[in-house]
Simulated scan of single mutants.
Amino acid sequence: MPLRVLIVDDSNFFRQRLKEMIDQHPDLSVVGTATNGREAVEQARSLRPDLVTMDFEMPEMDGITAVRHIMADRPVPILMFSSLTYEGARITLDALAAGAMDFMPKDFGEVSRNAQGLRDKLHERLLTLGRQARASASASREATRLQPARPVKKPTEKPVAREPQTPARPRGSYKLLVIGASTGGPVALTDVLVNLPATFPLPIVLVQHMPENFTRAFAERLNRQCQIQVREAQEGDTLQPGVALLAPGGKQMMLDARGGLRIVEDERMTYKPSLDITFGSAAKHYGNKVLGVVLTGMGADGREGGRMLKNAGSSIWSQDEASCVIYGMPMAVAKAGLSDKVLSLKDIGPRLVREVC
């Protein structure tokens, strides 16, 4: 059955072009459109779509308010469309915090050309979000179905031993923390970093898949919310304990032998920034002194760089499937046998404090 999509935008042109592009995929079907946030809330309630695409600036009710109402009423994956400006980034981050799952740039020129690249990217985002949501809902229904109608007293049994995980390394054995994420990452990174005290003893490097202009707004937001310092990385920055440096969007971030950062242009890589690139340079210059953490995200970025870290003797933690928005990047690392620990999102920050501080 095709995934059913509700399109929300006050531009008739944009609604029509999105509908044409979405309906070109056999596994996607537009079931309705709305011209403002209030209509979006009503349509989401009556049509019960599998996915919603959402604009921000609309009459009667803006997109963020609509996201909050929809997620409170009947949660559904929401893909925001945002301008590639600093202000657009700020608004998009607010929408993600309100419950939207992902975002794409709103480029009227690209939509007008009906560019194949945009169409393919839109299809990929919607299909990934929708299929993950369906799989999670199916698993939840199955778990409910298998629960007994009333508590059943079980005979006394010996506790089942859990699969052992790599024990904690001694304090002081790590010299650098590197965390990477993609879809769902802004919220996940926030959940992890707000747990860290201002006295956190390690330098922190952050890699979040984001376009240019978005990372500065994201770093400023994190800096306001966290006890540690967070800022967008710049060429020549040096690593400092208790300071998190966020890779700038559209570029690659690498470490050097003197504890500094290099910010470089790179047109070869799909992801800019790429966790593989940063993991690889950390392995080269820090050897077995790195703790890498892979959070929610689409794709497999981090797997090959993670392999380099593991070969150098460093450690990797990955987020578990149940707490991910998209179980892609951490799944790739775990399936490759690279994860020393697989943890729920809520446990990662506290575990960092226990094992590192």
Rank of each mutant, 00 (worst) to 15 (best):
M1Q: 13
V8S: 04
N12H: 12
Q16D: 12
D27F: 03
S29W: 00
G32H: 03
G37S: 10
R38S: 12
A40K: 09
E42V: 15
R48M: 10
E57K: 08
M58P: 11
R68V: 02
I70S: 03
L79K: 04
F81P: 07
R90L: 10
I91T: 15
L93E: 03
L96Q: 12
A97C: 00
G99C: 11
R119M: 12
E124M: 14
T128I: 13
S138W: 09
L146K: 14
V152G: 05
P170T: 07
P170N: 03
K175Y: 00
L177Q: 05
I179Y: 06
A181T: 09
G184W: 08
G185C: 01
L193D: 10
P203A: 02
P203C: 04
I204C: 05
H209Y: 03
P211L: 09
R216H: 12
R221G: 08
N223Q: 07
Q227A: 15
Q229G: 02
V230P: 06
E232F: 03
E232P: 11
P241N: 00
A244P: 05
L245W: 06
Q252W: 01
L255C: 05
D256Q: 00
E265S: 15
R268K: 10
T278Q: 02
T278Y: 01
K289T: 06
K289W: 00
V293R: 08
V294H: 06
V294F: 05
D301H: 02
R303C: 05
C324F: 07
I326G: 07
Y327R: 09
M329H: 06
P330R: 09
A332C: 04
A334L: 10
A336D: 13
S339L: 10
V342I: 15
P350T: 04
R351I: 05
R354M: 03
R354A: 15
C357Q: 13
